[in-house]
Amino acid sequence: MQLTINGATHDVDVEPDTPLLWVIREELGLTGTKYGCGIAQCGACTVLVDGVATRSCVTPADSVEGQEIRTIETVEETEVGRRVVAAWVENEVAQCGYCQSGQVLAATALLTETPNPSDDDIDGAMTNLCRCGTYNKIRAAVRSVAEG
């Protein structure tokens, strides 16, 4: 099948229901997208599919053929993505960092769709788990992007 990932079309030879996560990690060798739980609970595997934050560990590869997939490796190619990464650095959000690829992409999707999110918007969109408990810094970083 053909998948469009980070602006390039890739021919991948996998079982059609292979989770997008493992296509990205094993076929393309892009390891910024993380395996955390495999059942869409934690969000470490979040990628953007046509701009929508999507948990790639439960997304069959053949279900996203023809859609634009973006991973953390190219997040800074959009203006919002650049600002989100800058805010993450400025706020020193990361601790172990394992969940942060997903957090940054979830924030990028939120702030692209809703440049000035309310608290409820943030609660609704920023649902990825962080075992280091960086939640308050994540919220502060999202707000700092919104406030420009």
Binding site: G32, I72, E73, V85, E92, Q100
Partner: peptide, 13 residues
Amino acid sequence: PRLDVRAKSTGRQ
């Protein structure tokens, strides 16, 4: 500032 924040904000860690 932490030395590792940028790598950990861009999937490069």
